[in-house]
Design a binder for these strands. Structure first.
Length: 649
RNA sequence: GCCGAAGUGGCUCAGUGGUAGAGCAAUUCACUCGUAAUGAAUAGGUCGUGAGUUCGACUCUCACCUUCGGCUCCA
């Protein structure tokens, strides 16, 4: 006999092993319709998990990550079944659940079109009406291999062959469709009431560009049509904030074919926001004990040979000159990173332990020759500006300096209103891919342990992703998502134990010994262009007042008020506000409409009444007409809002 | 770089083999205006670029450039 209970609920004794699903059915009189998966003693599990001993169960629904995961995963199998019935020759690769839905990678010669997605979708709806049962079964390796080989599922056979010894090889079947799969899955397809296929694109088999390109179909599904529609509306709403669209519309930046891909032109509005951010960052860094450097944008290949960029980063660099003729003439490269340049500043004289930590910051232009398909608006570009710094420290200072860099990063995120939107990622090396990195394995492990210790102490909630380290050391990456849900690194803090050795950087310690310092590479606000893109997306182009390129627009009612309007503009400018006058010979309604569409934070209407009373009639972009106020009150209000860096749109 | 989609006046878009259109914007004129578009007129395009097919190409084919989504990569 063993006892099974629901957390905070019923319990019951059982004498025979049974599935978690059957136990839930016995324990829950109201039914199990919403239950998609289950936690067994705290471990998220498939509903088919067999119970033999005492267990506490917690049902999981669409509200729970793991429950939703099972729901999406089953949805991807239904999609695969629909594809198989339409194109029986399809070979299936992998079809996982993701945070926002699911996808399946398939190998099919016919290139799928939008219409094909619609027909797959309608076939899925037919299949879903059957509410098919989903069965799980386990096979020994040879039989599993044989089953998939019979069906010519070459990718599944490859997956089976690579499963480690002793791994359970499970399959799930619904109707005619059988898939190699670790689960979890729903008990049947009944709960899936609404489905939408979103896009089709290419994806390499096993994520390697050396392999065949498959077709990846993304979809999303819900327990009700209403939820699907709400989700699609939210997606559309997010896309309406796409910086690449409204950033151009609002005149932040543009591009031209003559200059080239990934090389945006920052127009006055975009350039102004970047300048505000750069000054803000440089001032804050100075306050925190940094020394500003200005180093060259290019260097001879010699420098990059020492740093390791020549061997580990050359594909990403713009090279000037012919490497074939290097014996006769110098070869230069535009810098992809600032580190080796600032190291030359350190090397300019002998350093004492008393000089450390030494903090060099620089608003750095960098150049990276991204592959042509990589560029995206201001988020991935070939020339960008980064809030870079290198903290050169003694071993006993690494922790404090690292925490200081994280604190500065969080200060910046807070100032921009991003603190709630980011996730923290501990990017470590991949010991199975040694060629990507410089240095010895023991050093990597030692520094990663050191960094993990600091991270744990910092209280930063992080996830570890192996394989994402820089070639010279592990990183803490602070990640954001754009309006398409794509993740990018905003800020990074890295510990480097390699380059000081390569560049012969030393300090003379208290005991007279020469020792290599540690180097922390870090950004404080990340890449300015990317940060601008994320600001535009977060605020829908309505920049908070302290960042707005135009803070106030003065609108004279008619031509005879223009001189007064210009006087008001001059007064605002003298107080340090970015103001302009709309002196066009247009009706006030039109000026207001255009000011609103341009998302100008404050607008002053100036006519006979205002001039007579010495008051401003004020509109805000969020609340419209807020009535008249004295010039003094208006200035005080705006200067306070700027000083406090209020982040409302 | 790879897979798929797209490129028509400054912007948003219509135009499926007979040689290009609308709205907004621009310019000029009139109106001197009170909280989201005053009216009229004018001007502006070798239809991304280059080849090819055709009597004839914005329209069909190919290559390249650029843009969008995804993959790989990455701040």
């Amino acid at each position: 006999m063993f006892n099974v209970s629901i957390r905070n609920g019923e319990s019951r004794e059982f004498s025979e092993p049974l599935s978690a699903y059957d136990a839930l059915r016995a324990l829950l009189p109201d039914g199990t319709a919403d239950i998609l998966a289950v936690e067994v003693n705290g471990v998220p599990s498939d509903l088919r998990t067999e119970l033999r001993d005492d267990a506490v169960l917690q049902p999981l629904t669409f509200e729970d990550d793991y429950g939703r995961h099972a729901f999406f995963h089953t949805s991807s199998h239904v999609m695969a079944e629909a594809i198989m019935s339409l194109w029986p020759e399809t070979k299936f690769a992998i079809g996982p659940a993701i945070d926002q839905g699911f996808y399946y990678d398939i190998d099919l010669d016919h290139a799928l079109s939008e219409e094909d997605l619609a027909s797959i979708e309608s076939r899925m709806r037919k299949l879903l009406k059957k509410r098919a049962r989903i069965e799980r079964f386990v096979l020994p390796r040879e039989e599993a291999r044989q089953l998939m080989a019979e069906r010519a599922e070459i990718y599944k056979v490859e997956l089976i062959d690579e499963l480690p010894e002793g791994e359970t090889i499970s399959f799930y079947r619904q109707g005619e469709f059988v898939d190699l799969c670790a689960g979890p899955h729903l008990m049947n397809t009944g709960p899936i009431k609404a489905v939408k296929l979103l896009s089709v694109s290419g994806a390499y088999w096993r994520g390697s560009e050396k392999n065949k390109m498959l077709q990846r179909i993304y979809g999303v599904s819900f327990p009700s049509k209403d939820e699907l529609e709400a989700h699609l509306a939210a997606l559309e709403e997010a896309r309406a904030r796409d910086h690449n669209k409204i950033g151009r519309q609002l005149g932040y930046f543009t591009t031209t074919d003559y200059i080239g891909q990934g090389l945006p032109i920052m127009l006055p509005k975009g350039a102004k926001v970047l300048q505000i951010l750069e000054r803000f960052v440089e001032d804050e860094e100075e306050r925190r004990g940094y020394f500003l450097t200005k180093t060259p944008l290019l260097a001879k290949s010699d420098l990059y040979k020492i740093s390791g960029h020549w061997d580990h980063y050359r594909d990403g660099m713009f090279i000037i000159g012919d490497p074939e003729k290097e014996a006769e003439e110098d070869v230069f490269a535009l810098r992809p990173m600032t580190c080796p340049f600032q190291f030359q500043a350190y090397l300019q004289k002998t350093r004492s332990y008393r000089d450390l930590p030494l903090r060099y910051n620089e608003t750095s232009k960098l150049f990276r020759n991204e592959a042509s398909g990589e560029m995206h608006g201001l988020i991935r570009i070939r020339q960008f500006t980064i809030s870079e710094a290198h903290l050169i420290t003694r071993p006993d200072q690494v922790e404090e300096e690292f925490l200081g860099a994280v604190d500065l990063a969080n200060f910046m995120l807070d100032a921009l209103g991003f603190l709630e939107d980011v996730t923290y990622r501990f990017s470590t090396w991949d010991p199975n891919n040694r060629d990507k990195y410089i240095g010895e394995a023991e050093e990597w492990e030692r520094v990663q342990d050191l960094m993990k210790g600091i991270l744990d102490k910092s209280g930063v909630p992080y996830e570890t992703t192996p394989g994402d380290a820089a070639f010279y050391g592990p990183k803490l990456d602070i990640q954001t998502r754009n309006v398409f849900g794509k993740e990018d690194t905003l800020i990074t803090v890295q510990i480097d134990f390699q380059l000081a050795q390569r560049f012969g950087m030393y300090y003379t310690d208290r005991d007279g010994e020469r020792r290599h310092p540690y180097i922390i590479h870090r950004t404080s606000i990340g890449c300015y262009e990317r940060t601008l893109a994320l600001l535009i997306e977060k605020y829908g182009g309505a920049m908070p007042l302290w960042l707005a390129p135009v803070q106030v627009r003065v609108m004279p009612i008619s031509e005879r008020h223009v001189d007064q309007a210009k006087a008001v503009e001059a007064r605002l400018r003298a107080a340090g506000l970015r103001a302009e006058t709309d002196a066009r010979d247009e009706k006030i309604g039109k000026k207001i409409k255009e000011g609103q569409l341009e998302k100008i934070p404050y607008v002053i209407i100036l006519g006979d009444q205002e001039i007579a009373e010495d008051k401003y009639a004020v509109r805000t972009r969020s609340d419209g007409d807020i009535g008249k106020m004295s010039p003094e009150d208006f200035l005080a209000r705006l200067l306070d809002e700027v000083a406090r860096r209020v982040n409302r749109p």
